[in-house]
Simulated scan of single mutants.
Amino acid sequence: MFRTTSGRRRGLLAVLAAMSLALTVSGCGVDGVTPEDARENASSDRKGAALATGVDCAKAKCIALTFDAGPGKDTPQLLDTLKAEKVPATFFLLGRKHVDRYPQVVKRISDEGHEVANHTWTHEILTDLEKSEVREELARTQDAIAKITGTKPTLMRPPQGRTDDTVADVSRELGLAQVLWSITAKDYSTTDTALIRKRVLDQAHRDGIILLHDIYDGTVPAVPGIIEELKRQGYTFVTVPQLLAPGKAEPGAVYRPEKG
């Protein structure tokens, strides 16, 4: 997507991502709910019910793979890897030039059991927008995804992890919980597959949420090695909803793991 004639856009996203280093997963000071808190605070009805996910992350050493800003040209290769390794992931999809350009890939992500989530329409920084503009960024992507998969997402990730009360209010209106991260390879800054792999493995921790981008050249080739090593270390890969279960992501709330 961000190659040849789209090179300027790729560069813009890289600059925006780099600007977020000081914020990383700060959420601009908005308090976040950890996966452990989500599980412990689940209603008695949900706690009493059997885990529909088949994974109990209160007992298992769980970690969630998430991918932002796709789908892109390499996403089918990534899906092949995830299918072969029987690893579920959560995809925070970008609307313009992604969801609308690769509808068959969006459908495949959904059909193969991955969690389909929202990463806005144009990757605008939501905290810089008026409330109506925030709603447009999120609602337009909701509708585009639902048109392809038949279901609107329940999770979103604000670009750069920047959120505030206005973003939370709109997310609540649209039925979207906000999901941040605790592990990042900063793959927007390098095409070095070995470095991307090392950065993820160095930060890995129980209940972690890994942030990667399936649009950058070095990332998808790094995934098999990441999966292999984390499995060797005893991790169980889950989607974000599985990580929170029996808790459930509440619209408007911010979910953010503590760093390991």
Rank of each mutant, 00 (worst) to 15 (best):
1 M>T: 14
6 S>Q: 10
9 R>Y: 14
10 R>N: 04
17 A>P: 02
24 T>P: 03
25 V>R: 14
28 C>P: 05
29 G>P: 05
32 G>F: 10
34 T>C: 10
35 P>I: 01
35 P>E: 05
37 D>C: 07
38 A>P: 09
41 N>S: 15
42 A>S: 11
44 S>D: 14
46 R>M: 11
46 R>I: 04
48 G>E: 04
50 A>M: 11
50 A>Q: 15
51 L>N: 15
51 L>C: 09
53 T>R: 06
55 V>G: 06
57 C>R: 05
61 K>C: 09
65 L>E: 05
66 T>L: 10
77 Q>Y: 03
78 L>S: 03
79 L>Y: 00
84 A>P: 02
86 K>M: 05
89 A>V: 04
89 A>G: 15
90 T>C: 00
92 F>N: 06
94 L>W: 02
95 G>V: 02
98 H>K: 06
106 V>K: 05
109 I>K: 08
110 S>M: 10
110 S>D: 13
111 D>M: 12
116 V>R: 12
117 A>N: 07
119 H>S: 06
121 W>R: 14
122 T>Y: 06
122 T>N: 14
126 L>G: 06
126 L>P: 02
128 D>I: 07
129 L>E: 05
130 E>C: 06
132 S>E: 15
132 S>I: 01
134 V>M: 04
136 E>K: 14
139 A>I: 09
143 D>R: 14
143 D>M: 07
144 A>P: 03
146 A>N: 10
147 K>N: 11
148 I>H: 06
152 K>F: 06
156 M>V: 09
156 M>N: 12
157 R>W: 00
158 P>V: 11
159 P>W: 11
160 Q>L: 12
166 T>I: 14
168 A>Q: 15
169 D>F: 06
169 D>G: 11
171 S>A: 15
172 R>Q: 15
174 L>N: 08
175 G>N: 09
176 L>K: 07
180 L>I: 05
186 K>T: 07
191 T>H: 03
191 T>W: 01
192 D>R: 07
195 L>W: 02
196 I>H: 06
197 R>E: 11
201 L>N: 04
204 A>N: 08
210 I>D: 03
213 H>W: 00
213 H>V: 03
215 I>Q: 02
217 D>V: 07
218 G>Q: 00
225 G>C: 12
229 E>C: 08
229 E>Y: 09
236 T>F: 07
237 F>M: 08
238 V>F: 00
240 V>R: 05
240 V>Q: 06
242 Q>G: 09
243 L>H: 01
244 L>G: 10
250 E>H: 13
252 G>R: 11
253 A>V: 13
256 R>I: 13
258 E>F: 11
258 E>H: 13
259 K>V: 15
260 G>Y: 12
